[in-house]
Design a protein around this nucleic acid. Structure first.
Lengths: 226, 226
DNA sequence: CGGACCCTTGATTCAGATCAACGAATGTGG
DNA sequence: CCACATTCGTTGATCTGAATCAAGGGTCCG
């Protein structure tokens, strides 16, 4: 299926938003749409076909698996996010859908050529990659020294921010895109500890759990941040 | 002091290596050399003057400090590495010299303009930033699930790789660029634990400590990796 | 010589992992 | 439609790896 940028929900936020109409059309010609449902894999670590993609809707996780088979979530991808490998010869990490998702997919070489031809696209990606780097370092800082309590609190706020349309203020009521197990894998703690911390926050009156995945931030100030 | 690229030790490895002679000269005109000694700060988080730099010699650490004053090392910078903020309005993290270091420093806007003018420079930075992102995620994976033993072992191998001239094979004998305390801050453990693990590895015959900072990798296969 | 670091080692404590059990929701096949 | 299995989350009891507390030695420097 080829791309239809006209109706794209991230038309003016994604990396390709910096392109002119004609440039975008040209890029669209080498891209394909792809739909994933929960748990489906977009890329696998080690794949020798370089590829990249822009996320149009849904959410993804970028993970690595250590020798003992334990999974670690390295990053989450939200709509308009860019993932993948343009230059390297192989994919570095696994990328899996957290829920139903829709993407534009490109081959690495095709996209690299577009970057060559449209310098503004390269610059947009540079900014975006720097943001990803900062996000990665933020997670590193969060999981480095903080207690389990602080990690879960930090993750809740971070997810509330991501769930909000307005970029600065967090949503007060939202659905977790992650299961308890995934939250645990992201924070480097166990499922049981995540569950206990959520129970504690609810007891303290900081949050309210609604259903399995729903969270209401009743009083974020009560969350114990680092 | 203005730049003298002719004698630059990272002349053909740094980001600016992709530029032609004339382009490089032009960039050199807006850059300054700076020397730091151990502990000196290059950038401070929150500084509103965007700036960036290429490291010519020595080593740097990129750190953040949490509310309780605990420092977390987010990344190490080795010669030819690029650091800083070209676009954003302020510096995101602290950058401090681990030992004597020499750099080329640029103002954010000046460098951003160079990126605008020389698209290859932007592409080189994009690659480099992606590498930094992968390095950050590697550290995230290392500090996420692994035991203290595995973290220290992983850090030793990583530093051995960085100390080697050949990019793939680790050095068998090298000096740690970090104190025990800094190693601990990077790995999210305590000084005492780092010390104990090094003692353990030496007892096991995996390494030999020479002086305070020297490490011989006697039998890396004995190191307990994740 | 005295002070300031930095590293090592030992004793004790504690946060979170592990082990275990259970309930709710969802799916499957008879 | 019901019996059954499976997955996911919660909660409790126990155990352990690493933090914390404490002490001492080595080295550099004024």
């Amino acid at each position: 299926m080829s791309l239809s940028c006209a109706t794209c929900p991230v038309r003016d936020r994604a990396a390709c938003a910096v392109l002119s109409e004609e440039e975008r059309d040209e890029l669209a010609r080498v891209g394909r749409t792809r739909k994933l449902s929960r748990g489906e894999t977009l890329f696998s670590a080690g794949e020798s076909e370089a590829a990249c993609a822009t996320l149009k809707s849904g959410a993804l996780k970028i993970t690595s698996t250590d020798i003992d088979g334990r999974e670690r979530i390295l990053s989450l991808v939200h709509p308009s996010g860019f993932i993948g490998e343009m230059f390297g010869p192989y994919m570095r990490h696994d990328v899996v859908a957290l829920g139903d998702a829709e993407l534009c997919v490109f081959s690495g070489p095709n996209f690299a050529e577009a970057v060559n031809r449209f310098p503004r696209l390269g610059q947009a990606l540079l900014r975006r990659t720097q943001e990803d780097l900062y996000a990665s370092r933020e997670l590193l800082a969060l999981t480095g020294n903080a207690s389990a309590e602080q990690r879960v609190a930090g993750a809740l706020l971070s997810l509330a921010r991501a769930a909000s349309d307005s970029p600065c203020h967090p949503a007060t009521s939202f659905e977790l895109p992650l299961s308890r197990g995934e939250l645990a894998d992201m924070l480097g703690i166990t499922i049981e500890t995540v569950s206990r911390m959520l129970t504690r926050f609810e007891k303290d009156g900081a949050i309210k759990r609604t259903g399995k995945r729903g969270i209401d931030l009743v009083d974020p100030a009560l969350l114990p941040l680092s």
